[in-house]
């Protein structure tokens, strides 16, 4: 199309904006995951996050460019009431635990519920969650959560997609986020399909809302 070549000068881009929150117990490696993803860096002695941190990243997944707005939250209990206000308006939620920390795995349900409650989401089955099992690089001797357990949990929870990552060795980090986007897209399309028959305008307004209610980046 000719009009494509005629794109005007733009200071910002017009990508699809996706708000992602990363949840999970303190110390499971959320901040490391975000840092590996956005800056391709790994810091061995990272500190506990205060409240929330926020980074943008533009990515191309399946030929579509997205601006990911990643909210990395503080997992420590004392930050609970400081992080929960940020859940609303989230598109994708990453539930994270570390494979060498059984408690963090056990807490997945708690995290999921906390998210659903504060993000005001009624139907968990239509929301794109991703389960990220972090620190997959650690030796088998230190690993305490087995793959089958994880899979079992995911199955019970509306088949949430699951991936094992290592921020340290840069394994599956991009994939994890891509998986999130995939899941989002799939659910979004399903949503559009079911609603197309009802009213076309609904979708439009929903999309408009989505793109307008959030910030976009350079």
């Amino acid at each position: 199309m000719a009009s494509h070549a005629l794109g005007g000068p733009r200071p910002g881009n017009r990508n699809v904006l996706l708000k992602i929150v990363i949840l999970g117990d303190g110390g499971v490696g959320k901040s490391c995951l975000m840092n590996r993803y956005v800056n391709n860096q790994f810091n061995d002695n990272s500190f506990h996050t205060i409240g929330v941190e926020f980074l943008n990243k533009d990515v191309k997944i399946n030929d579509e460019t997205y601006t990911m707005q990643i909210w990395d939250t503080a997992g420590q209990e004392r930050f609970k009431s400081l992080r929960t206000p940020f859940y609303r308006g989230t598109d994708i939620c990453m539930l994270t635990f570390a494979v060498d920390d059984r408690t963090s795995f056990k807490n997945l349900t708690m995290w999921k519920n906390e998210f659903l409650h504060y993000a005001n989401i009624k139907d968990a089955s239509t929301f794109p969650f991703i389960v990220v099992a972090s620190k997959a690089d650690i030796g088998a001797d230190k690993r305490v959560v087995t793959e089958s357990e994880i899979k079992c949990w995911c199955e019970v929870n509306d088949n949430i997609p699951y991936i094992e990552t290592s921020s340290k060795d840069a394994i599956n980090v991009e994939t994890a986020f891509a998986l999130g986007v995939d899941s989002w897209k799939r659910l979004e399309e399903a949503f559009d399909k079911t609603n197309n028959y009802v009213a076309d305008t609904v979708n439009l307004s929903r999309l408009a809302q989505r793109n307008s209610s959030k910030c976009c980046s350079n």
């Binding site: 205060i50 980074l55 943008n56």
Partner: peptide
């Protein structure tokens, strides 16, 4: 880290409105 987060939020707001 926190400064970066806040700065990013400001920049985002300004850019979005510019858009």
């Amino acid at each position: 880290h926190c400064r970066v987060t806040l700065q990013l939020l400001i920049d985002n707001a300004i850019d979005t409105v510019r858009n």
